[in-house]
């Protein structure tokens, strides 16, 4: 039995470790599959669906689906890209995202994905939901207007910090990230040193007084598109 698995992504053959997810296998081969809820230090969540690929013709989330011998993965085709655009646009209209006023601009993965996928304006009407801001904590700000419910903070608090600061409450369109207290983050054991405060892909969880330490224009996604770091590792000839 061979110790690696061979699959193709957009017609290019790659080798992967058995048990690896499609997302990780692609990444190791220098192929970027767009994603939001996935994070290298956290267990896969499979919720944002941005990493959806077609596997042997069927849609699957690349962050949760393990590789298999002979798998045919479609990642960068027009139909997959349009599906991802629709999902990103859904996230934009679901919340209140004003990039020009957001201190996360240029660090924001949602914004960066919109640029990468060539979205100029969402095709869907804005929902303008009423969401709250929790500035109770001395060092941390939660702005739920920007939350995309990816669950990174929920998982990071549990898996990396050994706490349980965040959790999902409500269901359907009323689902939101709550804190482990009656209402305020200040009443939890959250601290600015928690990894949970690092992982937010958007500007929903911010450390106070640190928003502009890197000037706009010099931020990672101001300079290179999201995913470029993975693609630059692509082996020549692959």
């Amino acid at each position: 039995m061979s110790s690696t698995v061979t699959l193709t992504i957009d017609g290019v053959e790659i080798q992967a470790q058995p048990g690896q997810t499609i997302l990780k296998a692609a990444e190791a081969a220098g192929v970027y599959i767009p994603r939001l809820c996935a994070h290298p230090d956290l267990t896969p969540h499979g919720s944002c669906r941005v990493c959806t690929v077609f596997v042997n013709g069927r849609p699957q989330s690349a962050c949760t689906q393990p590789v298999a011998e002979g798998m045919v993965v479609e990642n960068a085709s027009e139909r997959v890209t349009d599906l991802r655009r629709q999902i990103i646009e859904m996230l934009f209209v679901e919340g209140n995202h004003f990039c020009m006023f957001c201190e996360k601009s240029g660090h924001c993965e949602l914004q960066a994905l919109a640029y990468r996928l060539g979205i100029t304006a969402p095709r869907f009407p804005y929902q303008f939901p009423a969401r709250d801001v929790d500035a109770s904590h001395p060092d941390i700000l939660i702005d739920r207007n920007r939350c995309i419910l990816c669950g990174r903070c929920v998982r990071a608090s549990r898996e990396l910090d050994g706490k349980n600061v965040f959790g999902f409450v409500g269901r359907g369109p009323h689902k939101r990230v709550a804190v482990n207290a009656e209402a305020r983050l200040a009443d939890t054991d959250a601290t600015a040193g928690d990894r949970a405060m690092d992982v937010c892909p958007v500007g929903a969880i911010l450390r106070k007084r640190s928003g502009y330490t890197v000037p706009v224009g010099q931020r990672p996604y101001d300079r290179r598109p999201i995913g470029a770091e993975i693609e630059s590792a692509r082996k020549p000839g692959a």
């Binding site: 919720s47 859904m90 359907g172 689902k175």
Partner: peptide, 16 residues
């Protein structure tokens, strides 16, 4: 009403 809200397309897409 009955979507659990876990994934984007079902949570947002049905409303749209």
């Amino acid at each position: 009403d009955e979507s659990c809200g876990y994934c984007t397309p079902c949570r947002v897409g049905n409303v749209l």
